[in-house]
Amino acid sequence: MRIAVIGGTGLIGSQVVEILRAEGHEAMPLSLSTGVDLLTGQGLGEALKGAEVVVNLTNSPTFDDASGAFFHTTMDNLLAAADRAGVGHAVILSIVGAEQVPDLAYYRAKVLQEDILKAGPVPYSIVRATQFFEFMDAAFSWTADETTVRLPATPVQPMAAADVARAVAEVSVGSPLRGTRNVAGPEVFPLDELGRITLAARGDHRTVVTDAGAGMFAAAPGNALIAEEDAVIAPTAYRKWLEGQPRSAD
C-alpha cells in the first residue's frame, strides 16, 4: 500500500513511517524538508499522486489562537489535494477529550481540524491519543523555577509516542473508520503525582507543589483528559518507560 505521511520526519511521523515500511508498505515521509508545505499547498499535489492513504501528522507551530487558522488552512489544502489525487483514506491524529477543554485555543483548534475532516470529501479516520510521555517535561517546565515545579492535580492518562505511532499505523492500513479511535496509556495519574514520579526517577531534587491554576492542563475540567471505556489501552507503563530515560546530571 502506498501511504503518504505528512509530518513524516517528526516524533510520531518518523516512527509511523518505520512501522509501515517494516510491514511492507510504501510509506513516503513528507515535510517541508522534502518540499511539501501543507500551509501553502506547495508540492502537495505531486506528492499525493498514486497514494492510497494520506496521514496528516503536522502540527501548529503555536498553541494560541493562531492554531485555529493553521489547522483550517492546512486541512482545506490537504483535502482538496487528496480529493483531486483520488486518495481513498485520510487519517489525522488528535487529542482525547479535546472538545471538553474549550478554554484552550489549541484544543479548540484540534476539534476544528476534526470537523473539517469529517465534512470533507475523503473517507477518514481520526486517532485520538492522550498526552505523550515525551511531552511531560515540557508541561512541567511551564511553571517551574530552580527549586519548585507547580502542577495541578488534573488526572492524565499518558502514553508512549511509540504506542501512538503503532496506533496510527494500524488505523492507516485499515478501512476508513469514518469515526474515531481513542488510544490511551495503561495508567491514570494526577499530574502533580506524575511530576513527583518523574523528578525522582531523574534525580531532580526540585519540589512539586500542587497548584490548581498552574499551567495549561489546569484548564482541563474533571476527567476530560481520561479516555473513555472504548479506548484501546497501550502496553507501555510510565515508570517502565522512565527507566530507559537519562537521569539528571545532579
Rank of each mutant, 00 (worst) to 15 (best):
M1Y: 12
A4C: 09
I6G: 02
G7F: 10
T9K: 15
S14W: 12
Q15D: 12
E18H: 12
A22N: 12
H25I: 11
A27D: 12
P29H: 10
L32E: 08
S33I: 00
S33L: 05
S33Y: 08
S33F: 04
V36Y: 09
D37K: 12
G43S: 04
E46K: 11
K49G: 06
G50R: 11
A51H: 13
E52D: 15
L57H: 10
T58C: 11
T58R: 09
N59E: 13
T62Q: 14
F63R: 10
D64Y: 11
D64T: 00
A69M: 02
F70Q: 05
F70N: 03
F71P: 06
T74F: 08
T74E: 08
T74Q: 12
T74W: 05
M75A: 12
N77R: 13
N77L: 09
N77V: 04
L78Y: 09
L79P: 03
L79Q: 15
A81G: 07
A82T: 12
D83S: 15
G88C: 04
A90M: 02
V91E: 06
L93N: 13
L93Y: 14
I95R: 04
Q100G: 08
P102W: 11
A105T: 07
Q113D: 07
L117D: 00
L117C: 00
A119F: 02
A119H: 06
P121I: 06
P121G: 06
S125Y: 13
S125Q: 11
S125H: 10
V127E: 00
A129R: 00
A129I: 00
Q131C: 01
F133Y: 15
E134S: 04
M136W: 15
A138D: 11
D145R: 03
V149H: 09
V149Y: 00
A153D: 15
P155V: 03
P155G: 08
A160L: 04
A161C: 03
A162Q: 13
A162N: 12
V164I: 15
A165M: 11
E170H: 13
V171M: 08
S172M: 08
V173K: 05
V173Y: 02
P176R: 11
P176H: 01
R178K: 14
G179L: 00
G185E: 05
V188M: 03
V188A: 02
P190R: 15
D192W: 06
L199K: 14
A201C: 08
D204R: 06
T207E: 15
V208E: 07
T210Y: 02
A214C: 05
F217P: 01
F217W: 14
A219S: 14
G222T: 01
N223L: 02
L225K: 13
I226S: 01
A227R: 05
E229Q: 11
E229V: 09
D230T: 13
V232K: 10
A234E: 08
A234C: 08
Y238P: 09
Y238I: 04
K240Q: 14
E243I: 02
G244K: 07
G244V: 08
G244S: 07
P246V: 07
S248D: 14
A249V: 10
